[in-house]
Write a protein that binds this DNA or RNA. Structure first.
Length: 109
DNA sequence: CTAGTGACCCAAC
DNA sequence: GGTTGGGCCACTA
């Protein structure tokens, strides 16, 4: 496969354990692309259902699903199936389900 | 090359 | 709680 960046992103996403969620920025860090959160979203959007990637565990920093339409419903279902609870606002408790591979690099002091 | 767009993030109001 | 504006950079036309 050619796209290394995409590959790295997919690999990082696969690192997210079941029952946990990670924000785009967090994935970017794992993929060695810290700061390029957009690329994560871009790669995921380009992702196909065939891909073996738990894209549903990826959400935005607000702990909410960035997608819209029927797919958002699907993602939420998948997350609930993993034991993740949604707030009344449809948000996820990042404190409990937020995947932290390694504390922030604290780049921005 | 330029311009527009995007499953983003953050600071400030 | 929300909106607005700036920043970041890959991808497409």
């Amino acid at each position: 496969m050619g796209s290394d960046k995409h590959q790295r992103i997919y690999d990082a996403v696969r690192k997210v354990p079941r029952g946990r969620v990670a924000s785009y920025g967090r994935i970017a860090e794992l993929a060695d692309l810290d700061g390029h959160a957009r690329l994560v979203g871009y790669a995921l959007h380009s992702l196909k259902r065939d891909a073996n990637v738990p894209w549903h565990r990826i959400i935005n920093s607000q702990g909410k699903i960035s997608l819209a339409g029927p797919i958002a419903r699907t993602q939420r279902k998948l997350l609930e199936a993993e034991g993740i609870r949604f707030s009344t606002s449809g948000k996820i408790d990042l404190v409990k389900f937020g995947f932290t591979a390694k504390a922030r690099k604290g780049k921005r002091t």
